[in-house]
């Protein structure tokens, strides 16, 4: 295959992945909107058995309700199960197409390379890992309740990526041409994916907790979201997985590579500063979870602050600061020399 063919394949695969994710989103929308019709008792019956530490109420909604379900309710339950499974399968297919897109980007370049050369490719990879980690954790944490958030996020970010961040396949800039690119970027992307999933869980935690605090009986789809304690635990697990990976990416491989490429292992480059800020905020989150008065709500808010700094750092800082050595927007000389710094008389 020629490079152009690979590039076209990649672009088509991105479009395919986008459509599949969108269909998955639609399927989950049908699934969740059907859930609204399910009577509160049936829904509540499904969740009331869930306490902290026991298995999640993420399973398919079945007729556990105290009252015998009517035929219509049974039909709805079938429908919920059907569309839930459909959404999951479509997400899986989307992830596969997404993977093809990434491979295509790498193969389209001359010489072939890892698909991490510009913001378009970084974002493509970051979003891929959000979806892939969602699937990876799906069974372990029974993540059915996260399906709508994940598909919405993935569709939205892919659109942002394709519309605003797209850049044609190009060779790597010189500084990126290093084995550390692979290890640094992949760990940063994995951490980003897991942190993002943790952030989504924290949002659901805050919503659910607020609803319960108001003394309302959870209705509709909210009833299907696990109890706050369980959400808190799942969010913690995701963050606890992501934090060491982020530490590895940002504080070990980053500095080692920076030392090789830029002569100094820590340059206070805006991207580095924000990676550090993200690290500190997540460190604060982990602390908050074991501090009286900060558990639960405040910790979840800190996790969201962390998600915000993470994505601001991923994309936003490039538009804020032009000096960043991490902004791969335009080809630039390796490093510009500051005139006037040489104060040697002639």
């Amino acid at each position: 295959m020629t490079d152009t063919a690979w590039e076209m394949l990649s672009n088509r695969a991105v479009a395919t992945a986008g459509i599949l994710y969108f269909l998955a989103l639609l399927a989950h929308l049908v699934e969740w909107s059907t859930m609204r019709k399910v009577p509160v008792e049936v829904a509540a019956g499904a969740t009331s058995g869930t306490t902290s530490g026991t298995t999640a109420a993420g399973g398919v909604l079945v007729d556990l309700g105290p009252t015998a379900p009517t035929a219509a309710e049974e039909r709805d339950a079938d429908r919920i199960a059907l569309f839930g499974r459909l959404g999951l399968i479509l997400t899986g297919l989307g992830v596969a197409a997404h993977f093809v897109a990434l491979v295509g980007r790498g193969m389209a370049a001359d010489p072939n390379r890892v698909p991490w050369g510009n913001m378009y490719e970084f974002t493509l990879s970051g979003v891929f890992l959000v979806a892939a980690l969602y699937l990876a954790f799906y069974k372990k944490f029974a993540l059915a309740w996260l399906s709508l958030s994940v598909t919405t996020f993935v569709v939205a970010m892919l659109m942002v990526d394709v519309i605003w961040l797209y850049g044609p396949v190009a060779p790597l800039t010189e500084a990126l041409n290093s084995p550390w690119l692979v290890i640094h970027v992949i760990s940063a992307c994995i951490a980003t994916g897991a942190f993002t999933l943790g952030g989504m869980t924290s949002v659901l935690f805050l919503l659910k907790e607020r609803q319960l605090a108001k003394g309302k009986q959870p209705r509709g789809w909210m009833a299907r979201v696990p109890a706050p304690a369980r959400l808190d635990l799942v969010a913690y697990r995701m963050h606890a997985f992501a934090f060491p990976v982020w530490t590895f990416a940002v504080l070990i491989t980053g500095p080692i590579w920076a030392h090789q490429a830029w002569s100094s292992y820590w340059n206070w480059d805006p991207k580095e500063v924000w990676a550090f800020i993200t690290w500190v905020v997540y460190a604060a989150y982990l602390h908050a979870r074991s501090t009286a008065g900060w558990k639960g709500r405040n910790a979840a808010i800190l996790a969201l602050v962390g998600t915000a700094t993470l994505w601001f750092n991923f994309i936003g800082i490039n538009y804020f600061s032009t000096t960043s050595q991490h902004s791969y927007a335009a080809p630039a000389p390796v490093v510009q020399v500051a005139p006037g710094s040489g104060s040697v008389g002639v």
Partner: peptide, 18 residues
């Protein structure tokens, strides 16, 4: 609690430099 606040303060203090 103080450690937590200092951590957040550190994050905040790093912002202007960027």
């Amino acid at each position: 609690r103080t450690a937590l606040i200092l951590l957040l303060l550190l994050a905040l203090a790093a912002v202007p430099g960027s």
